[in-house]
């Protein structure tokens, strides 16, 4: 198990370098000069321009730029933004907000997703199951920004149950509605996945045997159907944590959440390579670590899986 974990953590290095290189190149190749964006299109003397280009290494060839970036990275220097702020400081402010948002979304989708999924699966073909199937299909089909604006308007403005936007502090309470919006599509997938898995497992031979042993229906469901059905769901949830953090851009935009998505969006607009690459790098690490945790959980849930 230990050697497997070390191997997986070692895999982080090439994945990280590959991802940052790709992002670095994409920002580099984007049309438009970052200096123009910085000056806001105002005329600028050639000397100032050259000085600024030198300051941000923009005058050097691509490989040199990327090499310098990696060199600084080793000393935990993520570079500075065009506004002169340390990227690490920007990230330090935005990351916890998005992490809170994503974790809340993950909690909502796993708790409600699994509960609804199990009930629907056990009552296949009954009204609850049919309702859940239709509702989840609607949620999957409607784009997130539509759902987001509708919920914001209805719950936040008309009903006035929560504040429609998030303050700079971004507390857990304020983040509930954005998290619901963020997790809603995944919630629909979790419901469907759990439902299918439960339906498959409830007709398994070992479930019949468990019933034949004299166990109550409740125990058969919780002990023999649920754990076995969770195996594919856990895989999905783990991979989803990464997507939630990366995919928060739209939700953060709607609710004005000062998170990573917000930061990334602004950085891309300005062509601020260090910030873009840093954000993406962190997201890559989150993604890989989340997948590692999934693999561990997988072995925990299913004893037949052993890593060597």
């Amino acid at each position: 198990m230990l050697s497997f974990m070390l191997k997986r953590i070692a895999q982080l290095i090439p994945v990280f370098i590959g991802a940052t290189l790709l992002v670095y190149f994409l920002v580099f190749a984007t049309p438009g000069n970052p200096i123009d964006a910085l000056s806001g299109g105002k005329p600028m003397s050639d000397a100032t321009r050259a000085a600024l280009e030198a300051q941000y290494n923009l005058d050097k060839p691509f490989w040199v730029q990327y090499g310098l970036y990696l060199k600084n990275l080793v000393t935990f220097d993520l570079g500075t933004s065009f506004s002169g702020q340390e990227v690490s400081a920007l990230l330090g402010r935005a990351f916890p907000v998005t992490a809170r948002l994503a974790i809340l979304a993950l909690l909502i989708e796993s708790v409600f997703g699994i509960i609804f999924g199990v009930i629907a699966g056990m009552r296949k073909g009954k009204w609850f199951d049919s309702t859940i199937l239709v509702a989840s299909l609607i949620v999957i089909a409607v784009p997130t920004f539509v759902l987001g604006f509708v919920l914001q308007f209805v719950v936040g403005v008309k009903l006035d149950l929560v504040k429609p936007t998030v303050s700079g502090a971004a507390t857990w309470g304020e983040l509930f509605l954005p998290a619901l919006v963020l997790g809603l599509v995944s919630l629909a997938y979790v419901v469907r996945l759990t439902r299918t898995s439960v339906i498959e497992n409830k007709s398994a031979d070992f479930v019949r045997t468990a019933t034949a042993k004299g166990l109550s229906r409740r125990r058969v469901i919780t002990v023999h159907i649920l754990r076995n059905s969770l195996i594919p769901v856990v895989t999905f949830l783990g991979a989803d944590l990464g997507s939630l953090m990366g995919g928060a851009i739209v939700t953060e935009g709607i609710f004005n959440v000062p998170g990573v998505g917000h930061l990334l969006y602004q950085a891309i607009q300005k062509g601020e390579t260090p910030t873009v690459v840093a954000v993406v790098g962190v997201l890559v690490i989150v993604f890989v670590v989340a997948n590692l945790v999934v693999d561990m959980l997988y072995a925990l849930l299913d004893p037949r899986i052993r890593y060597a």
Partner: peptide
């Protein structure tokens, strides 16, 4: 039951 391969819950 009939099939010893499928009648024990693999995760317990």
């Amino acid at each position: 039951p009939q099939d010893p391969m499928s009648n024990l819950n693999p995760v317990w």
